[in-house]
């Protein structure tokens, strides 16, 4: 079992699945000769050739549309869009076509495609390279939105996304790409989609997050442990469809919940989770569900991105509010 960074785990999953399934192709800008701007597709061109590793023109609508066309013919396209800020030209294709084709043909056609994109900020990138787009897609019926947060999940969830018969938006945590390494077994085993992962058990408070802010959430749980507070940490992993059962089960145990999201606050996925807890778990709560989130601002440029991104202190502040209302016995 190799110790891999998230970006290496993604690369490994692509190699593994392309070797296993000749119908898998990858496409996108600079993904061939250059191996992708983050090197997610490194080595694929040499191993699988230019027919299956397609360097596309600089046209994001085309990348999404080609993926749709390929997927209708039984090809399994895995497209890369260089940064999620450049996913906007794909929204028309994904929402008006990829999510709808199965439904509008009553099952005659389908779009088993994956669009991968680095998402969220924190790497001091230029403008438009740090946005949080998960809610834009999670709102859309017929789609799966998957956000891995560690190397093993990046590997196993990407395999699952490629094998899934429906369209998947796969948003990768840019700032965690090379942040840490963890064991990944290249066993070709997919992890379950539509399922949240309880990655740390605890009885005092439930911390829920996904993607890049899982890192800050883990650090917050560490800090709480030093204060004698046992946080249960849940990685939502698949935002749509949302596994509320796992979250509700945890909240029933802890009675306290803070949801951490980097995206702007209003109408974010934390709101959806909080609304579901209010509907189905209110009576097990000792305190209101709190959100540690990005602000309702434009994602700032590099100098101010730390002002925006929820850090450990912001998470702990929300946790403190919860314990002020409902102290630990």
């Amino acid at each position: 079992m190799a110790n891999l960074a998230i970006i290496e785990a993604i690369n490994l999953a692509l190699h593994s699945e392309m070797a296993r399934d000749p119908d898998v192709v990858v496409l996108g800008e600079d993904i061939g000769r250059n191996g992708g701007v983050f090197r997610a597709t490194l080595g694929l061109l040499d191993t699988f050739g230019p027919e299956r590793v397609i360097d596309t023109p600089l046209a994001e609508t085309l990348v999404a549309a080609m993926s749709i066309g390929l997927s209708t013919q039984g090809i399994r396209p895995v497209a890369e869009v260089q940064f999620s800020g450049f996913l906007y030209p794909c929204v028309d294709q994904v929402v008006n076509h990829a999510t709808r084709l199965r439904n509008r043909t009553r099952g005659r056609m389908s779009c088993p495609l994956v669009i991968r994109s680095p998402n969220w900020g924190g790497i001091h990138a230029p403008e438009h390279h740090s946005e949080a787009l998960e809610t834009t897609f999670a709102h859309m019926p017929g789609l799966r939105v998957v956000c891995p947060s560690n190397p093993a999940r990046a590997y196993g969830l990407l395999l699952a996304a490629i094998r899934d018969p429906d369209p998947v938006i796969f948003l990768e945590p840019t700032r965690c790409y090379r942040l840490f390494k963890a064991p990944v077994e290249d066993n070709g085993a997919a992890l379950p989609l539509d399922t949240a992962f309880v990655e740390r058990e605890g009885g005092d408070i439930t911390l829920v997050s996904w993607g890049a802010t899982m890192h800050e959430t883990r650090l917050a749980a560490d800090a709480l442990a030093e204060q004698g507070i046992a946080a249960e940490v849940i990685d939502v992993a698949t935002l749509k469809p949302l596994d509320m059962d796992t979250i509700l089960e945890s909240v029933a145990k802890t009675g306290r919940c803070v949801i951490v999201q980097e995206a702007p606050r209003a109408g974010g996925w934390a709101s959806e989770i909080a609304a579901n807890i209010a509907e189905h778990g209110l009576l097990s709560l000792f305190a209101p569900v709190m959100r540690a989130s990005g602000y309702d601002t434009i994602m700032p440029l590099a100098r101010s991105e730390k002002v925006y991104i929820p850090d450990v202190a912001r998470i702990l502040r929300e946790v403190r509010k919860v314990f002020e209302i409902a102290p630990k016995n």
Binding site: A65, M66, G69, S71, T72, Q73, I75, Q93
Partner: peptide, 17 residues
Amino acid sequence: GTHVPQAVGVAYAVRLR
């Protein structure tokens, strides 16, 4: 016109096969 670029993908699949 949104289906027109999809045709590029469909035709690519035909050529690939």
